[in-house]
Write a protein that binds this DNA or RNA. Structure first.
Lengths: 234, 234
DNA sequence: CTTGAAAAATGAATGTAATTCATATAGTAT
DNA sequence: ATACTATATGAATTACATTCATTTTTCAAG
């Protein structure tokens, strides 16, 4: 088989697969999970019922593809959301703003991930992989800040990550479920403020004793630094 | 109808209803949502298939009852979890510890609430009411601390609540989904530390603190001059 | 330009599980 | 005991997901 013919064929199949995923997304957003039927998806994608099964193992796999397409989109956007900030707190604020705005806009698709995950075990599809990829955005920002000494170093990454995404997702869910109006800015500012206080390099205590301790420690660090450099002997 | 006869009759029906809910809980915990069938529940509860529908409108309503029974249990326990602490941070720590321990133990039932909620709209059942009742535990602790001036007063309750429950639920979910071992204490201590820093009444800065800041800055400059610590990549 | 084997697509048939409903049974008041 | 009502029953119905025997399309080789 010539290479460009194969290319064309694969293109054609991928286009059809994408059309099916798009149709499934539309139906799901209109009707919700329970009322989405394979027959309706097939009708919208303009294929026969059976055709769906040549592209996806079953309904769950198809819905998982819907979810995967969405995570790919937002992971891409999330990476852009931090690109303009160079200090930790600005990057956190930008990413928080992007994240909660997205959650409020696309919550039905995000929640679909959870529904699929909890409805049945699907280890072969690894439903949480998309999320892990997405949350690596925060990980990079955090690790860079650690390297630069912008934040205290005794809080493990995973705790910071849980705080960040957990707070935003809970806030978004509260807002979507209740009928409270959206208040993105208030939520973002509050989270950033807490992180600013809780993750700042630890402020030394102001007792005289503590000052002396701090000075001793600083001197010790200086000594150990210069002793590692034989050229600048002491 | 005599009153005690009515009482007996209602008792009988309530016992049967509880038996059905218990059977449903068992089957669900064994098989997961998709593989739980009404026929199996009926068999376990020792009633006919149709009988289930004289107690519950449909499968979702029955599963919702399973969820409701669980929320009632844990709301009761949660209230006990804070009763022995009298200051804010102790109460927060006690409740945090109870909450995440419960989440790790009963996550399948907690998640079932979400699955049901997101699978279809059920405004008549008000799936989130249980959760609202539960989270009022935190609200009471927080409002009491506000009254007593134990914490700063410019953080709205809902933001504090989102931070508290959001962080713990995200942490629990991460742990359940991954195969990382449980680390309740680390998570609790970290959350309490962040809340302690972020919610403490703001202290006015003192002269001594300014001195320390200046010394810190001077030492940092010295250190950066005597050795260019390369930022370790990652 | 044919051709036939492999890949895709089809939709009627099948299987599974939720839900309904006509009928039977049990409980209660008179 | 009798009639009346509330409960319980499980066979029949319904709604979908999924399968599979056929048909249609694609494409490399002659």
């Amino acid at each position: 088989m010539p290479l460009d013919a194969a290319q064309t064929k694969r293109d054609r199949l991928e286009k059809k697969e994408a059309a099916i995923v798009d149709a499934a997304t539309d139906v799901y957003l209109e009707k919700g999970f329970e009322k989405t039927t394979m027959a309706e998806i097939a009708r919208r994608a303009d294929v026969a019922d059976g055709t769906l099964y040549t592209y996806f193992k079953n309904k769950n796999a198809l819905m998982m593809a819907v979810v995967a397409a969405h995570w790919a989109r937002i992971t891409d956007e999330a990476n852009k959301s931090i690109s303009s900030s160079d200090n930790f707190f600005d990057a956190v604020e930008a990413h928080a703003r992007y994240h909660i705005t997205m959650l409020l806009k696309d919550w039905r698709l995000i929640d679909l991930s959870y529904v699929l995950y909890y409805m049945q075990r699907m280890p072969e599809i690894e439903a949480t992989a998309y999320k892990r990829e997405y949350s690596s955005v925060f990980d990079r920002v955090y690790n860079r800040a650690l390297d630069r000494g912008e934040i205290r170093s005794d809080v493990p990454l995973r705790h910071a990550r849980d705080l960040f995404y957990g707070t935003l997702e809970y806030a978004a869910r509260t807002q979507v479920q209740g009928r409270s109006k959206q208040e993105v800015e208030s939520i973002v500012k509050n989270l950033v403020a807490v992180i600013r206080e809780g993750f700042a390099p630890s402020k030394p205590s102001t007792t005289r004793e503590a000052i002396v301790d701090r000075l001793e420690a600083a001197v010790a660090r200086l000594e150990s630094v210069s002793s590692r450099k034989p050229t600048s002997g002491r």
